[in-house]
C-alpha cells in the first residue's frame, strides 16, 4: 500500500482527532470547542457538496443546520425523547425543510441559486424568530441534554464522552462523503458543475441529481445541527441566519472547496480562531471579515487546495475550469442561453 499525500492526511487527521481530548488543554482550548469544530465541519461539508462538487453557491445551509438544532431541541423539550431519537428527529426536520424548499432551488444555477438559497433560508430564521411561544423567539430556547437511550443504558454524555460520540459520527460521515463523491452519483454532480449541458445530452435529468444533492446536503447539515444543539443545550435563531451560512461557505473556501478534508481545516481555523481571538477582543467581526477578504484574494483555492495542487493531485480546481470556459465561448453561450 502506497502512502500518497491524501492517505497521509487521512491517517494524521484521525490520529490527531482521537487524541484531541488530551491535546486541546495544551493550547488552552476546551474539548467542547473541538467538538464544535467537528459539528461545524459537518455543516461545512454539506455546503462543500453543493459548492465544491456541484458548483452551486449554498447560502442557506445554516437553515438546515438550525432546523437540526431546533428539531432536536423541540422534540426534547416537548416530547422528552432520548439522545438518539432527538438526533434522528433533528436530521429529519432538516430533510423535511429541504423537501419543501428544494423544488424552488433546483431549477436555478449560479448566482440565482445563491440568491434563492439566501432568501429561502431566511424564512426559517424568521419563523424561529417570530414563533416566540414555541421557539422562545429571539432569546432562544433551553433544553436539557437527554439520556443516550440505548436499551436500558441510561447515561448522559459529557465532555470527552460526547466528543468521542461526535467523532464516531464524524468519521462515519467523512467516509460516507468520500464514498458518495466517488460514486457515479458524485461524479455526475461534478459533471453537472463542469458542463451541465453535456450531462443533459447524455440523457441524465440534471435537476433530479441536484435535488438529491440538496437533500443529502441538508441531511448532513441537520445531523451536525442536532448534535450541536445537544452540545450547547440551546437553540437560537441566529443559528439559521444567512450570516451563519456565509461562515460555512467561508470555512469551505478557506480549507479548500472540492476536497474531503478542506472543510475540517477551514472550520478548525474558524471556530478555534474565533474562540481564541474573542477571548482577547470583542472586535472578532473585523477579523472574520478580513479573513474573508484575505482568503478570497490571497488563496482562492483554499489552504488544502493549494497544498494538494503542489503535490500534483489537484482537487477539483475551479481555476482550470474557468480557463476552459473562457476558451470555448460556444459552450459558454450554449450554457447561458
Amino acid at each position: 500500500m502506497r502512502f500518497g499525500p491524501t492517505r497521509l492526511i487521512t491517517v494524521g487527521v484521525v490520529i490527531l482527532l482521537a487524541l484531541a481530548p488530551f491535546l486541546s488543554p495544551l493550547i488552552h482550548v476546551d474539548i467542547s470547542i473541538v467538538n464544535e469544530v467537528l459539528l461545524f465541519t459537518l455543516a461545512a461539508m454539506s455546503a462543500n457538496l453543493l459548492l465544491g462538487y456541484t458548483g452551486l453557491p449554498p447560502f442557506g445551509n445554516a437553515a438546515f443546520f438550525g432546523l437540526g438544532t431546533y428539531g432536536a431541541g423541540l422534540s426534547i423539550k416537548y416530547f422528552h425523547v432520548n439522545f438518539i431519537e432527538a438526533t434522528l428527529l433533528g436530521t429529519a426536520a432538516a430533510l423535511l425543510g429541504a423537501l419543501v424548499v428544494g423544488p424552488f432551488l433546483v431549477r436555478r444555477r449560479g448566482i440565482y441559486f445563491g440568491l434563492l438559497s439566501i432568501a429561502f433560508g431566511q424564512v426559517f430564521y424568521f419563523i424561529a424568530y417570530r414563533f416566540t411561544d414555541v421557539t422562545g423567539g429571539e432569546d432562544g430556547m433551553n433544553f436539557a441534554r437527554p439520556y443516550l437511550g440505548i436499551s436500558n443504558f441510561h447515561v448522559t454524555l459529557h465532555g470527552s464522552g460526547f466528543y468521542y460520540l461526535t467523532l464516531v459520527v464524524f468519521v462515519a460521515s467523512i467516509l460516507a462523503f468520500k464514498l458518495l463523491v466517488e460514486s457515479p452519483f458524485g461524479r455526475t454532480l461534478v459533471a453537472i458543475r463542469q458542463n451541465e449541458v453535456r450531462v443533459r445530452y447524455l440523457g441524465l435529468d440534471s435537476n433530479r441529481f441536484v435535488f438529491v444533492a440538496i437533500l443529502i446536503s441538508a441531511t448532513m447539515a441537520g445531523l451536525g445541527g442536532a448534535l450541536f444543539g445537544m452540545l450547547n443545550n440551546f437553540a437560537w435563531p441566529l443559528l439559521m441566519d444567512w450570516h451563519q451560512s456565509g461562515d460555512f461557505v467561508l470555512s469551505v473556501i478557506l480549507g479548500g472547496s472540492g476536497t474531503i478534508w478542506g472543510p475540517l481545516l477551514g472550520s478548525a481555523i474558524y471556530v478555534i480562531g474565533k474562540d481564541i481571538i474573542s477571548s482577547y477582543t470583542n472586535l472578532w467581526q473585523i477579523f472574520i471579515g478580513a479573513l474573508f477578504v484575505a482568503c478570497v484574494l490571497g488563496f482562492p483555492r483554499g489552504i488544502l487546495g493549494s497544498i494538494l495542487a503542489r503535490f500534483g493531485t489537484a482537487p477539483l480546481s475551479n481555476e482550470s475550469e474557468e480557463a476552459n470556459w473562457t476558451q470555448s465561448p460556444a459552450i459558454a453561450a450554449d450554457h447561458h442561453g
Binding site: 459548492l51 453557491p57 447560502f59 449560479g110 448566482i111 445563491g114 450570516h243 456565509g246 461557505v249 467561508l250 473556501i253 472586535l283 467581526q285 473585523i286 472574520i288 471579515g289 478580513a290 479573513l291 474573508f292 477578504v293 482568503c295 478570497v296 484574494l297 482562492p300 475551479n318 474557468e322 473562457t326
Partner: peptide
C-alpha cells in the same frame, strides 16, 4: 478589491463583499 475577481466565479466576489460588510458593521460600531 472586486476588480481582480471579475474573471472568477461569482462566489468569490460574493464572499469578499460579505467580508467587507462584516468589517464595515464593526467599524461603524466603533
Amino acid at each position: 478589491l472586486i476588480r481582480p475577481l471579475y474573471q472568477k466565479e461569482p462566489i468569490y466576489s460574493l464572499l469578499l463583499t460579505f467580508g467587507l460588510s462584516l468589517m464595515a458593521e464593526e467599524i461603524y460600531h466603533i
